[in-house]
């Protein structure tokens, strides 16, 4: 996984509640065999017109948000089906940070497995951030995971909570597999013992 580094980036605004994973990545794309390449299908039904052209009314199609890595959005983001294709699509599109008041549980966990930092803010903070983006589309926020701080030119910065173990993994670019492999010696010795105890499993 890419280590999560301090960055300054455009913050895009998607002011909708209860965005579910079906909307994030529609089911017709689940037969794909790659983990990458879902970005073009992100928010498909909102994002494209019937003829495949960009829908100019969709928030994220605002040219001011081009290249944004931070997604500011509203309550209960990522609800519905547990498909891991949803965070894959978000990451592939280019976002590595989401700021919202709340997330669905499985989606929240899936984010950390895919180098995405989901930040939780209170309603008041969210309103301030939304206003700042609306007044100044294309505004750039700074996200510092190390210090657990977000700062904005409009002075609406805040600090946030994150599980220390997950924080360490994001900063170190360690996926769960990377973490487990730090204990590979323990797996090796377990396996040696396992072979002695249950030899019939190994023939």
């Amino acid at each position: 996984m890419e280590p999560y580094v301090k960055h300054e980036s455009i913050a895009a605004l998607l002011n909708r509640n209860n965005v579910d994973t079906d909307q994030i990545i529609a089911k017709q794309f689940l037969k794909k065999v790659e983990r990458s390449g879902f970005g073009v299908h992100l928010f498909h039904d909102w994002r494209y017109n019937e003829d495949g052209s960009d829908n100019p009314d969709f928030e994220l199609n605002n040219p001011a948000f081009k290249g944004a890595r931070i997604l500011v959005t509203s309550d209960n983001f990522g609800c519905g089906s547990s498909r891991e294709h949803a965070p894959w699509a978000i990451a592939d599109y280019g976002f590595n940070t989401i700021i919202s008041t709340s997330y669905a549980d499985i989606f929240y966990n899936n984010c950390f497995k895919n180098s995405i930092l989901p930040i939780v803010v209170n309603k008041q903070q969210l309103d301030l951030l939304m206003r700042e983006i609306n007044e100044n589309p294309g505004v750039r926020f700074v996200v510092d995971l190390e210090k657990q701080q977000v700062s904005t030119p409009g002075g609406n910065g805040f600090s946030f909570e994150v599980d220390p173990f997950r924080k360490g993994n994001l900063l170190g670019g360690l996926d769960d597999i990377g973490c487990t492999l730090k204990h590979v010696d323990k797996i090796d010795s377990y396996e040696t013992q396992h072979k002695q105890l249950y030899p019939w499993l190994w023939v």
């Binding site: 891991e84 899936n110 597999i177 487990t180 492999l181 797996i187």
Partner: peptide, 16 residues
């Protein structure tokens, strides 16, 4: 298990 976990098991033969 989920797809990330499938990968985890292939690589490590274990699962948290």
């Amino acid at each position: 298990i989920g797809t990330s976990e499938v990968e985890h098991v292939m690589a490590t033969q274990t699962l948290p």
